[in-house]
Amino acid sequence: MLFMVLEDGTEAITFPRLNWAVVVIASALAVGLAVVIAIVVGSAHFEQTPAPEPPASCEPFCPMPT
């Protein structure tokens, strides 16, 4: 929204026209950035520690024979 005072003193409020080329370029850049981030996160190799080995003895949680 743009507020203007004309030469004769009248006040006018105008709405500038939307530049669709800028909208398309900005949208393409946003989608491209999202795709790049998805590829980087999807191909990342996170340090995964192996699961701890179970103890040799199951005490105190050994199954009781029935």
Results as ranks from 00 to 15, higher is better:
39 I>C: 09
36 V>R: 12
4 M>D: 03
19 N>R: 06
50 P>S: 03
52 P>R: 06
2 L>V: 10
7 E>Y: 00
39 I>H: 04
35 V>A: 15
25 I>Y: 07
52 P>K: 04
57 S>K: 03
26 A>F: 05
1 M>Y: 11
37 I>T: 08
47 E>G: 03
26 A>K: 00
23 V>T: 04
31 V>W: 10
7 E>A: 02
59 E>W: 15
23 V>R: 04
14 T>A: 15
3 F>E: 12
19 N>W: 08
38 A>P: 08
34 A>D: 05
56 A>I: 09
48 Q>A: 13
49 T>V: 05
28 A>Y: 07
29 L>P: 01
45 H>P: 06
36 V>D: 08
45 H>F: 10
35 V>C: 11
41 V>N: 07
9 G>V: 01
38 A>E: 08
22 V>P: 03
65 P>E: 05
38 A>F: 15
66 T>R: 06
62 C>E: 01
24 V>P: 07
13 I>D: 06
31 V>Q: 02
8 D>V: 01
21 A>S: 14
9 G>A: 02
57 S>C: 04
35 V>M: 14
40 V>T: 10
27 S>G: 15
65 P>M: 10
35 V>F: 12
32 G>K: 12
52 P>Y: 00
8 D>G: 02
48 Q>T: 10
52 P>H: 01
41 V>R: 10
35 V>Q: 08
14 T>N: 10
6 L>K: 15
65 P>Q: 07
13 I>N: 09
36 V>H: 00
41 V>M: 12
14 T>M: 09
63 P>A: 11
44 A>Y: 15
11 E>V: 10
19 N>Y: 04
9 G>M: 01
